Amino acid sequence: MKAAFKLSPGKLTIAWLFILPVLLIRAFTTLYPTVVTFVSSLFEINIFKGGDWTFIGFDNFVTVLQDEKVLTSIKFTLIFTSVSMAFHIIFGIFVAMLLNVRFKGKKFLRTVTLIPWAMPMIVTGLASKWAFNNTYGLINDLIRRFNPDFQFDWLIYPASARLAVIMVDLWKDVPFFAILLLAGLQFIPDEIYESAKIDGAGAVKSFWAITMPLLMRTLLTLCIFFTLWRIVSYDIVYAMTTGGPGDATSLLAYRISVEAFTNLNIGYASAIAVCLFLIMVVFSSLNLVAIKRTEH
């Protein structure tokens, strides 16, 4: 069978010629910017002197380790990613299990569930900025229906502003996460649950003994992509808090944009981007290790 699919040298050359344009485009849009970012992180780039590049070695990275604003951004990025993904998993599984129940109108409910995800994040962020306002915000209005004297401006205190950003991120993306988990749930045969029920297993035991083991690979695969999306999040902070109060909600991707396009410190922004890349590699590696362990 393998010999039947073996290409002759001429056909193999033609195949590579067809693939080459795609590879060149991919290299230009992905590989080239990555290499330039790593190289520019070793330079001080002065765009006011005709783009003068001065080699400074690893000085930018030393500055990163001493920059309180960047360290705060790294800290919040790790908090935001870890907490958000933990609740993505908890709420995502819960919503997916609910949507997997057979009832009339489930197709409509699944469609409605995706509405928050379908909204652009920049729109969600701007709407949330109004929603968390103390005077006319939706959140405080709901709370005041039970506690009329409640007064609190969510976005002017570091802890509550961070909580608000994480809550909005969960509201926006958990529905999509749940729908993808639902697809994984539907691949689990009903016969397995019926056999477990005959053997005396209840709903809780079936969940931990059947659902979670069979769903684990799908769950971990989704975690890779959703974790990376959390790490490089930018628009939610830009629209909702602009990194404030102070730098409390400044994610690392937002800090890079500020250094590159506001402070015009291209070399330093590149060094921060390299740090962001390394953080992404660490998180991805941990997820890949977890996936490999589920195979045994």
Rank of each mutant, 00 (worst) to 15 (best):
Glu68Asn: 15
Val83Glu: 02
Pro245Met: 04
Asp199Asn: 11
Phe91Tyr: 07
Ser233Arg: 02
Pro175Asp: 07
Leu99Thr: 05
Gly137Ser: 11
Val64Tyr: 01
Gly10Val: 08
Leu138Ile: 15
Asn140Arg: 04
Ile56Ser: 07
Ala203Asp: 05
Trp229Ser: 02
Ile192His: 05
Asp169Cys: 00
Phe225Ala: 03
Ser270Met: 05
Gly10Trp: 11
Cys223Gln: 00
Arg145Leu: 15
Leu170Lys: 08
Ile143His: 04
Arg255Leu: 08
Val168Thr: 15
Ala164Cys: 02
Ile266Lys: 03
Ser195Ala: 14
Tyr32Asn: 00
Ala253Ser: 15
Val70Leu: 12
Thr294Asp: 11
Asn60Lys: 08
Gln66Met: 07
Thr63Leu: 08
Ile291Ala: 03
Leu219Tyr: 12
Ser84Tyr: 14
Pro120Asn: 13
Phe28Ala: 15
Leu264Val: 13
Pro120Ile: 10
Lys292His: 07
Met167Ile: 11
Lys11Asn: 11
Phe18Val: 10
Leu42Met: 06
Leu251Thr: 12
Val95Gln: 03
Lys104Glu: 15
Leu286Lys: 01
Ser206His: 00
Met121Arg: 07
Ser285Pro: 04
Phe277Arg: 00
Val168Pro: 03
Pro120Trp: 15
Lys197Glu: 12
Asn60Ser: 08
Pro158Trp: 06
Ile266Trp: 09
Asn100Gly: 04
Ala4Lys: 13
Phe43Ser: 00
Ser270Lys: 03
Asn263Val: 14
Gly184Met: 13
Ser8Leu: 10
Leu23Ser: 11
Gly246Gln: 12
Phe108Cys: 01
Ala269His: 02
Gly92Leu: 10
Lys2Arg: 09
Glu259Thr: 04
Gly267Glu: 03
Ile231Asn: 01
Met97Glu: 10
Cys223Val: 02
Lys2Met: 10
Trp229Gly: 01
Tyr238Leu: 09
Ser84Trp: 09
Phe226Asp: 06
Val168Arg: 05
Gly267Lys: 02
Phe80Trp: 13
Ile236Ser: 07
Phe261Val: 03
Ile45Tyr: 06
Val274Asn: 00
Phe5Arg: 12
Thr262Glu: 15
Ile198Arg: 01
Gly200Ile: 04
Leu17Thr: 07
Ile236Trp: 01
Ser160Cys: 03
Ile19Pro: 01
Leu65Phe: 14
Arg144Ile: 05
Trp53Asp: 03
Ala27Pro: 05
Leu142Phe: 11
Phe226Arg: 14
Arg102Lys: 15
Asp190Gly: 07
Gly137Arg: 08
Lys197Cys: 00
Ile115Asn: 12
Leu228Tyr: 02
Glu68Phe: 10
Lys129Phe: 05
Leu278His: 00
Thr111Ser: 15
Asn263Gln: 14
Gly50Arg: 07
Asn46Asp: 10
Ile14Asp: 07
Ala131Ser: 11
Gly244Tyr: 04
Trp171Gln: 10
Asn287Arg: 05
Ala269Phe: 01
Met119Pro: 01
Leu286Asp: 01
Ser73Arg: 00
Arg26Phe: 12
Lys49Ala: 13
Asn134Ser: 14
Leu215Phe: 10
Gly246Thr: 08
Phe261Tyr: 14
Tyr268Gly: 06
Phe283Glu: 03
Thr113Ala: 12
Arg144Glu: 08
Ile93Cys: 08
Thr124Tyr: 01
Thr242Gln: 14
Asn134Gly: 04
Lys2Val: 10
